[in-house]
Design a protein around this nucleic acid. Structure first.
Lengths: 221, 221
DNA sequence: TAGCTAACGTACTGGTTCGTACATTAGTCA
DNA sequence: TGACTAATGTACGAACCAGTACGTTAGCTA
């Protein structure tokens, strides 16, 4: 295991606090996502890193804090992704559809994150609640939705009585369910919601749904 | 703890296989839903029944089989509920809206079931896969949707290219997300999706969304 | 280059947890 | 009413698992 980047040491022991910490977080993210908080084993996480269990306690304090750190980093990643959203140059309908598609893509690309969120919900969001950072993380996506919605409502394209948080919930629920409930849905109904061949179909379906809702003539019903 | 139903015994020991088994299932359902499969403790489940851990192994064989039995009974309950669906006397639009509302109500009334499904998805539906019963449980709701959809498409009310399984996924995703992700969503966005005061709002939103999707003129976009 | 400390490793512990061996009894039926 | 068996209880073991006491060393800096 001697590479150019990591020259051999007499002892093989290398000191790199940043790398060690990051490696623990990487492995812990995989393990927690794979088997849940209670199902994960601190020993197993340590065994899959190049360091020892001792270091987990040294850097994070304990299993609980490690899980919180995993959540914090995972949420940080999506916040960053949301910050690079660039849809406001489009007209409101296209902008919302594009935003929905980006949400769709992001969920699909980060199944581990979806699993962590499911797990955190089983724990009633207790780690989020006790995290300084996650309490004030906000959501750039929400701001984007708010602005598009306002512009669409002003121009009369969208029905007036829609709220950004609710629309975000609507979009997220479809994207989240598709990934999170993939297994039970597949087992019960014989259809793989994440089948690559069906990807475009569901991506379009999401956009159609959201736009139909936003542009519907509510008086019709 | 002496009641009319259960007269005192010299030893307090009563034999009732059916009751014992049902009581274990009740408690196990609560515990598994509360803390997940790995988080649940066989000893704790036993302690909360009027019998002992020995009986769990006697009747179910082990923790894994107990969890499967919990899932089987839980899915059985919704299948029964679905069988009593009675919406086909309504016109297609009203029928779909009513069906969505009943799905909405059912999810809200059975948060433990939602949690069990989330947990089973973390385990990649392995218990469903290995269950004889759950493999062929089917879904009466799906048949209902299929018939309403066919009638609505025939009369030209609904867009033609919609599939029953997909529509079921759409309705379920909204209902499921609202309950399952209540905690993280609340913690991050400060809005309780299950707030009773907002119940009618979200119930209407779901119906509006589904109907808008089904009746939209897809060519507009 | 001596010494200091952040970074790391080893080995262990105490409590937990699934599962079982063995003993007992309630209720039934010949 | 005696015997048989399904149903139940007790006590324990072996593996597991989060966390820690204690010792070591790499790399920096005075």
């Amino acid at each position: 295991m001697t590479s150019v980047d990591e020259p051999a040491r007499p002892n093989g022991r290398i000191r790199d606090a940043v790398r060690t910490k990051a490696e623990i977080l990487d492995v812990a993210t995989q393990e927690f996502a794979r088997v849940g908080y209670a199902g994960a084993r601190v020993d197993d996480i340590a065994a899959r890193t190049r360091t020892t269990k001792r270091m987990i306690y040294y850097y994070f304090g304990g299993k609980e804090q490690l899980f919180t750190a995993v959540l914090e980093r995972s949420y940080g990643v999506i916040r960053e992704a949301e910050q690079s959203l660039d849809v406001e140059h489009l007209d409101p309908v296209a902008a919302i559809r594009r935003l929905a598609e980006l949400t769709f893509d992001h969920h699909e690309r980060h199944p581990d994150f979806i699993r962590l969120v499911s797990i955190e919900n089983i724990h009633e969001a207790e780690h989020i609640a006790s995290s300084e950072m996650l309490g004030r993380i906000g959501s750039p996506a929400l701001d984007v939705i708010r602005r598009i919605l306002a512009s669409g409502q002003e121009s009369g394209l969208f029905t007036a009585d829609v709220d950004a948080v609710d629309l975000h919930a609507m979009i997220s629920s479809f994207c989240f369910f598709r990934v999170a409930n993939r297994h039970t849905f597949g087992a019960l109904f014989g259809r793989d919601l994440v089948d690559p061949a069906q990807r475009e179909h569901y991506r379009t379906m999401l956009g159609d749904m959201v736009i139909a809702y936003l542009t519907a003539d509510r008086a019709t019903d």
